[in-house]
Design a protein around this nucleic acid. Structure first.
Length: 289
DNA sequence: CCTTGTGTTCTCCG
DNA sequence: CCGGAGAACACAAG
């Protein structure tokens, strides 16, 4: 489940692998993975290269190098739940005994889009559950999409004051707030649980009931947990791998996610598993109030 | 039937 | 009755 730390890790890996590389060919085997027609998608990308790869929340933004038309275009990638972007150097076989497919038990039938680069190497977009997709947009559409996200929690603009402002007038519980991309960008179910455990706040707490000090604790935990998870290259629970096909190691640092029914790591109680905001939620009702 | 990110639809409230 | 926010649901497949 790629959230901000996973998507950021993929972004960094891709910048190393594909920046400035000429796209010779794009093969789309599953048009459902596109928001535009297969033909126009292949046509726009063929012969292009990427100037920069950015990220907003869980969305990746490939900046296409300008061509003769002079128009700015961007390739947006949403990985959904099980989407992967993995690069293969020319020495790596795509399929076969020592291939990616074989190494990762990942069937080629889940591979929906392949970019082939000049000089060898390919970028594969694979997605078992097919919630992910790619889309090519112009500048106007990009701005529109970017405006729909809340602040970047690791950005310099995300100050305590800014966080307090995003909470103003909001109703509902704090977990639903953390998961809402319009409020804060990039937090998903794993890190929402980890952040609230770290802050000692119950996921069920109503936003308006939070004291000034509690808001500060949550703010500090958001920064701390996400930063550490990026340093550990993300959390691999089932599907996530980085741009080189490697797992992230933050799973070893998880304190509550996936621990429902097990002993709490902060006290002698047990971790509870309930549904909050429609999502499985792990928390300790003794450590989190 | 469990899992979850997101796009859509439903419902509630002032 | 309207707008907006939040809640609920749909989706996919291992």
């Amino acid at each position: 489940m790629p959230e901000l730390p996973e998507v950021e890790t993929i972004r960094r890996g891709l910048e190393e692998k594909v920046l400035g590389r000429l796209v010779l060919k794009v093969v789309v085997s599953n048009p459902v993975a596109l928001r535009s027609s297969k033909e126009s998608f292949e046509k726009v990308l063929r012969g292009k290269s990427f100037d920069k790869i950015g990220r907003r929340g869980k969305m990746l933004i490939f900046f296409l190098k300008k061509d003769n038309s002079g128009e700015d275009r961007f390739l947006l990638v949403r990985l959904g739940m099980t989407g992967r972007l993995v690069y293969f150097g020319k020495e790596d076989a795509l399929w076969g005994s020592n291939s990616y497919e074989n190494k990762n038990s990942y069937s080629s039938r889940h591979c929906h889009i392949v970019f082939c680069f000049k000089g060898g190497g390919s970028l594969l977009f694979c997605d078992v559950r097919r919630f992910g997709y790619m889309e090519i947009v112009d500048k106007e559409k990009l701005e529109e999409k970017l405006a729909a996200f809340g602040p970047e929690p690791l950005g310099s603009g995300f100050t305590l004051v800014a966080f307090r402002r995003t909470l103003e007038g909001r109703k509902g519980n704090i977990k639903a707030f953390l998961l809402d991309q319009k409020r804060i960008a990039g937090i998903g179910n794993i890190y929402a649980d980890e952040i609230l455990f770290d802050a000692g706040i119950s996921p069920l707490r109503n936003i308006q009931s939070l004291s000034s000090d509690e808001v500060k604790k949550i703010y500090t935990s958001i920064k701390k947990i996400l930063k550490r998870a990026v340093e550990k290259r993300g959390t691999t629970f089932s599907d996530y791998v980085d741009a080189s096909g490697n797992k992230g190691s933050y799973k070893n640092s998880l304190k509550v996610y996936g621990r429902g029914g097990k002993d709490c790591l902060g006290c002698s109680g047990k971790v509870k598993k309930i549904i909050v905001a429609g999502r499985g939620t792990n928390f300790c009702d003794r450590c989190q109030r």
